[in-house]
Nucleic acid binder design. Structure first.
Length: 608
RNA sequence: GCCGUUGUAGCUUAGUGGUAAAGCACGUCAUUGGUAAUGACGAGACCGUGAGUCCGAUCCUCACCAACGGCUCCA
């Protein structure tokens, strides 16, 4: 069965991948009698195929399955299709409830039913195969990759099927290249680099999804937060400080209790009947700061920022490094404003988001996240309010000529949003920045302001985050920079390396000079040889180091060396590239460092 | 939570039904060395946790915990 999306381009690689999915079906049905095949599309790096299997398949069975596939392919001369009647289709797939469900659905939608045949295979399919599989399929350019569970039709209420993933390319070389690239990407993995560079740790005793940041890691996390603070000040967001747990009542009014109770952690007090909850977000509390005194239309927008810890009871299988945690924070902010202020508020925030991501040299895309009108129960508020608020957001993007894609069903429970999406080293997408429009929460908390005409009105609430969650963002940044943090984010910025013991004193003077100027400097005065000291600096991905020996002392000039040849690190950058050397005076060194730190480097971020 | 994989020293890994090996890192001593591995010696692990089978379990079985890759979810 194929799952060809009509938009999909039927390239040769597509045909190969799609044909392989059919081939896998045939092999599995021979090796596992009683196996039922469900869907099996071509994907970016190969294909997958879902099965309902009589017994478990594990990766150890892959060689046997691949061998069978290579046998069967010899018997596939042609791949031909023909249209069939609903009756014929029903009869052919009476044994397979998944196919039956699909063919009934296609028929009811008035779609044509087609069977495709090759060798002994007969499958319900739209087409898009190699015409002569035995001649055209490169049999050494595919490899079964992994096995995973997947719910039938993506619904967790349905039966879990076995999904077998395969890698497939047009040539063996491409396959090998892809596997190598994936290995390389794994070297950038923030979980691996986080350990190697001593940035954060987990402990079985502390619990899963609860990272502890070491001094170096905490430095980076704090630097990310402090940069958010600078940007918040620019936008007029005043930082507030709020408690970590609240009465349940707060979340009942906000609506989170009803919709997200399962994801909230309970706190019990021996002095009160009702449970408390560790807060999974800050917005309800911020409404109460707003509500603490009467507000005039002249006061708006009123803007609060918050970096409080948040707690979410994520399911164990969903946790992942720093990108998905149970305890984390957001660079959260809420603006309460009038309707006529929505546009400028959004534009200002968009501008600052762009500035931040430009500074970090991140690539990103913008998604307009809308509600799913077919599942209104997932959201708060009436369809009219949703239509109106979605239109406002879309118009802002259009007027500012900003490229965006639409994400149906990606909205927050209380309103539509603009999300900034970026990728990790393995190509998985993560939301970072977000700007959300909310007409609902202010109503639920009965927030008001007095308008120019003396009447009480309800403000609009804008929820926003510049980097999303500093922890997640740090994980993505580690991969983005391959651990080669720019100078302003580096826990250690420069290392002073004396060649021999008798150079230690001179080196110490330079160390003190830099330290007095708030440069994060280390002195390598341990009794080790030069090679080892330099190696340590490189392994720790320290941006700069200075070697001090007789030459330097005589000339009064320093030999400054840089981790990345003087270039700012890129996501393609890696350890071990050539370093650059230059001779500078102490004053020049200090000036150069201070300038690079204060500007944070600068080059336009690419909108992809 | 579900499907699959994994868990041996700080790190990376080897290995076995009879309580375990190596490299790096670490410590001591020697080496005063000009840019990715100076030498010698030493210390370091009840083999994720708990139970079971066995004369005996790191190894086999079960349960739990945790990590990784997916699915679902992601305020």
């Amino acid at each position: 069965m194929c799952y060809c999306r009509s938009m999909e381009k039927v390239t040769n690689a597509y045909k190969i991948r799609h044909t392989l999915a059919h081939l896998l079906v045939t092999a599995i049905k021979e090796l596992y009698p009683g196996a039922k095949n469900a869907i099996g599309p071509a994907i970016d790096d190969g294909f997958y195929q879902d099965f309902d299997l009589p017994k478990a398949v594990s990766v150890e069975d892959f060689p046997k399955i691949e061998k069978k596939m290579r046998e069967i392919i010899k018997t596939w001369d042609t791949f031909t299709g023909r249209e069939v009647t609903l009756e014929e289709a029903r009869a052919e797939f009476a044994w397979n409830e998944y196919k039956t469900e699909l063919l009934e659905e296609f028929a009811s939608e008035g779609k044509k039913l087609t069977f495709y045949t090759s060798g002994t295979l007969v499958d319900l399919c739209k087409g898009g195969h190699l015409e002569h599989p035995n001649k055209d399929l490169p049999i050494d350019a595919f490899k079964l990759d992994r096995v995973a569970g997947a719910y039938w039709r993506g619904d967790e209420k349905n039966k879990m099927l076995t999904r077998i993933y395969g890698l497939a390319f047009e040539t063996k070389e491409e396959l090998e290249k892809y596997i190598d690239q994936r290995e390389e990407a794994k070297k950038r993995d923030h979980k691996k680099l986080g350990k190697e560079l001593d940035l954060f740790v987990f402990s079985d005793l502390v619990g899963s999804g609860m990272p502890m940041f070491t001094p170096k890691g905490a430095f980076i996390r704090n630097s990310i937060i402090n940069f958010c603070r600078e940007l918040n000040a620019e936008l007029g967001f005043g930082e507030v400080h709020t408690p970590n747990f609240n009465k349940a009542e707060l979340f009942k009014i906000s609506g989170h209790y009803e919709k997200y109770k399962e994801d909230m952690l309970t706190v019990r007090s021996q002095y009160s009947e009702e449970d408390f909850f560790l807060k999974p977000m800050n917005c309800p509390q911020h409404t109460q700061i707003y509500a603490s005194r009467p507000r005039s239309y002249r006061d708006l927008p009123i803007r609060y920022a918050d970096f409080a810890n948040l707690y979410r009871d994520e399911r164990p299988g969903e946790l992942s490094g720093l990108t998905r945690l149970r305890c984390f924070c957001q660079d959260d902010g809420h603006a309460f404003c009038r309707e006529d202020q929505i546009k400028s508020e959004f534009e200002n925030i968009l501008g600052v988001v762009k500035k931040a991501l430009t500074t970090y040299k991140m690539n990103y895309k913008i998604r307009l996240s809308l509600w799913d009108p077919e599942k209104p129960e997932k959201y708060l508020g009436s369809p009219e309010v949703w239509e109106r608020s979605q239109e406002i957001l879309e118009n802002i993007l259009k007027e500012n000529k900003i490229k965006y894609e639409i994400g149906v069903g990606e909205a927050a429970i209380y309103g539509p949003k603009m999300d900034i999406i970026t990728k990790d080293s393995l190509g998985r997408e993560w939301q970072i920045s977000t700007i959300q429009l909310d007409f609902i929460m202010p109503q639920r908390f009965k927030l008001t302001y007095t308008d120019a005409d003396g009447k009480e009105k309800t403000p609009v609430m804008i929820h926003r985050a510049i980097v999303g969650s500093p922890e997640r963002f740090m994980g993505i940044l580690i991969e983005h920079y391959s651990g080669n943090f720019p100078l302003w984010l580096s826990p250690v910025q420069i290392k002073i390396i004396p060649v021999r013991e008798n150079h230690n004193e001179y080196a110490k003077n330079i160390f003190e000079l830099l330290k007095e100027n708030n440069i994060r400097v280390e002195l390598a005065n341990e009794d080790e040889n030069l090679g080892k000291k330099v190696r340590d600096a490189k392994n720790n991905k320290i941006p700069y180091w200075v070697v001090i020996g007789d030459k330097e002392i005589e000339s009064g000039k320093l030999t400054l060396e840089s981790r990345d040849g003087g270039q700012m690190p890129t996501s393609e950058g890696e350890n071990g590239t050539e370093t650059s050397k230059s001779n500078v005076s102490q004053e020049e060194l200090l000036k150069k460092l201070l300038e690079e730190i204060s500007t944070k480097g600068a080059a336009p971020a690419k909108l992809v």
